[in-house]
Amino acid sequence: MEEIKKVIELKDVTKDYGDFKLNAISFCVPEGSVCGFIGQNGAGKTTTINLILDVIKRDAGEIWVFGESIDQDSAHLRENIGVVFAEMGFHEFMTGKDINTMMKNIYKNWDEEIFFTYLKRFSLPSKKRCGAFSRGMQMKLQIAVALSHHAKMLIMDEPTSGLDPIVRNEMLDIFREFVVEEDHTILLSSHITADLEKLADEVVFIDGGRIILTGNKDEILEKHGLLKCRKEDADKVSESLIIHKEISSLGAEILINDRRAAAKLYPDFIIEPASLEQIMLHYVSRER
């Protein structure tokens, strides 16, 4: 069987800021996949992305990108990575044309034709200062830059946060187009789980600097379920199935780790599929 290529691999990566610690995290992103990096604000998503990009120095652990350790020469690895941040980062006085001139003198594979095609497609004026762009336009500009140097991987940190649903959907379409190519990969960090539910193949849950769940999205959604019952019935559910239970005056809601097994064992209880958001909330509550 052909081994799955990993474009990103982290092993026991630790970064200690004193008041926050990324605690020996390990996960990998397979080639050709969309990996959703989920966690609430302050969970450690941006720190992890900065570590992958070698923008900050880790305290311990190993990171490989495209099979190469980032300790060797991380600069050349970044030729194949397009990055999109939540905030634009380009100087407000810069126009699309300025950005093109700057980038074509930085990226070996910069394709100005593609860049201007994206600007046109996104209705971004190339001669207007990007400081005058709306937030949606600024994000689109970043995406145009990330897609114009023939990157094989996109790393995006909260690219859809603060955007209206129409622009968010437009962006998700662009990401889908990107991953049509077999060797194209996306690592998409977000706390908006609805976006990831539409797009991701793999998910990595992070909370308080620790990875709490990782795996194939469909398998995770398939396995997990929400068992709803009266609160006095909650104790009847086997502990081995329970990830976390929440008891309220209205009844009990239990996140279970094997929906099929639970359905067989408890045919009288309502067992619903759980969304990524519900799974995340229960896991986070359990950790606390």
């Binding site: 900065n50 990009l53 070698d54 923008v55 020469d73 600069a75 050349h76 690895l77 970044r78 030729e79 990575i81 990055v83 941040f85 905030e87 634009m88 980062g89 380009f90 100087h91 407000e92 930085i106 990226y107 070996k108 790393i155």
Partner: peptide
């Protein structure tokens, strides 16, 4: 000053420049 104001240092970190 301009790099600090715009947050360009984040972008420069992801560029393929040593």
């Amino acid at each position: 000053i301009q790099d600090g104001t715009s947050g360009f240092h984040k972008i420069s970190g992801m560029l393929p420049v040593s």
